[in-house]
Each structure stands twice: as structure tokens, then as C-alpha cells.
Simulated assay, not measured.
Amino acid sequence: MSLFDRFNLGAGFSKYFKIEAAATDAVRDEVYRVRHEVYCEELKFEPERPDRRETDAYDAHSLHCLLRGAQAPHPSVGCIRLVLPAPDALAAPLPFETTCAHTIDRRIIDPAKLDRTRIAEVSRLAVRAAYRRRKGEQNVAVALQDEDYEEVGRQPRFPYIPIGLYLGSVALAARNNVDTLFVLTEPRLASHFSKLGVEIKQIGGPVEHRGTRVPSMMDVQSIIKGLRFMVKPIWRVIHEQIEASAPPR
């Protein structure tokens, strides 16, 4: 019997974590501090900043999620952002369009020709070191492994943190009328996501960006409709929490 069949993943997520849209300056400040801790202080991907906040020009037109511990004092665990095209410069490239300018296969899809108001890029996924205890995670912002979907002895395991953050970004995308998500990530992400019922399509060749990464795309509504039956409870919990914490429409 698989982990999916034995456990309610929604209840499991709620027991340990809660997720929220970064709808206030205070929550966004927590996001930037998590990013600085992971990207600047631990992994040295970015230079350290005097104010200990990791930000860039894309944050001005991005949406953010913050994952916390479910129990008081609700410590920050990790974060993720959704980069939208700038409203006053829709044609300006998203980060992956610059990084992968020469590797995107435009016969598959040309992001420049899409309705730019309905696309976004998932990026800046970061998890604090205290929650990255598994083998192979020390030098990456977060990781997924094949064993995450199995049982180890009598103990089930499920990658609540990365999957929770990815689903949080999907909930934000759906809420903001985004149809297509792009992501620059490790080549094996597709095989991990397929276990959840999520189809992710590679749209270009690999690039060197903090390791080997490939540009990929996902359809937001197809993700929501295609989630495996036993994954739907965690999606419902995350969707409800994002809706409850996001600003009024």
C-alpha cells in the first residue's frame, strides 16, 4: 500500500505547516529574509546585503508565498515567488527568458508571442537549512528525491515543504488569472511531478544556472484538474489558505 493510499496528505500538511500569500509588507519582509539566509548566507548564490534581505528588480511585479510551521510561534520555513511581467513593460523578458534566450525551442512555445498578462515564472524557491536535513540537500535551496514518495520502514514520508510551496504558487497563479507557468529547474523535476499527476513539459535545452537547469512549462488549469486523487486534499488545504490570506479581489 502506497503512502498516498494510507494517509490524508491534507491533514498531514495542516499538522505541520501553514502557507500564506505575502499580502503585507511585513510578510514580504519575512520572505526576503528567508531568501537572504538561504541564497546569500548559506549557498552564496547572491552577495550578502547589509539589511539581510535578498531582493531584485523582479520583486516589484511578483507575488510571494511564505510557508510557516503550524504551531506557535509559527516560524518561517520557506518561500517561493511568482514573477509576473511588469504591467508597464509586458514585453520585457521574465528571468528564464534571459537565462535561456539561446536554448528555448520556440517551435514548442514562444513566450514572447503569448498573452503576456496570463503567464508567470515560478522562482526563488528557498527552504531554511533547519528544514533541509536530508542527504543531498546541503548545497541546494530545496530538493526532491524518489524516496519522498515511498515508505521507509514503518515511517511514511512525503515532501510537504517543496510540494506545498509549488502548489502555493499554483494557487496564486490561478487566483491571478495566469494560464501558463514557466520554471527553470533541475531536469528530473518532471519525473517527480508526474507522481502527483502534474505534467511539466521541457521547452528547451539545459543551461548552467546554479547547476544544470532546463526551462519547462506547466498549464495551471491542467495541474489543478490532473492532480492525483490522494493529492487533492493537500491542494484544497493550500488553496484555502492562500485564498484566506490574499488581499481582497
Rank of each mutant, 00 (worst) to 15 (best):
A86P: 11
V34I: 12
F45I: 01
P50Q: 10
P85Q: 09
E20N: 04
R28W: 10
D29I: 00
Y39A: 03
E37R: 00
A86M: 06
P50I: 09
C79T: 14
S62T: 06
P50V: 10
R28C: 12
E46F: 09
A60H: 12
P93R: 09
P75I: 00
P87H: 01
V38T: 03
C65S: 15
V31A: 06
E54F: 02
T55S: 07
V38R: 01
A21I: 07
A57W: 07
A89E: 12
P73E: 09
P73H: 13
T55V: 15
A23P: 02
E30V: 04
A22K: 00
C40Q: 05
L66D: 01
P87G: 04
D25W: 10
S62D: 02
A21T: 05
F45C: 03
A91G: 10
A57K: 12
H36R: 00
A22W: 05
E30N: 07
A89K: 12
E46M: 13
R49Q: 13
Y32M: 09
V31Q: 10
P50F: 06
P50C: 10
A60P: 04
E30C: 07
Y39E: 00
D25T: 14
R49E: 08
L84F: 13
R52E: 15
S62V: 01
T55K: 15
A72K: 14
R35Y: 05
D56W: 11
A91M: 13
D56I: 13
Y32C: 07
F45T: 02
T24G: 03
T24M: 08
R52H: 14
T55D: 07
L66M: 14
I80R: 04
A70H: 08
R53H: 12
E37M: 01
P75Q: 09
L84M: 11
L94W: 07
R68E: 02
A22V: 05
R33S: 15
Q71V: 15
G69C: 13
V31F: 09
Y58V: 10
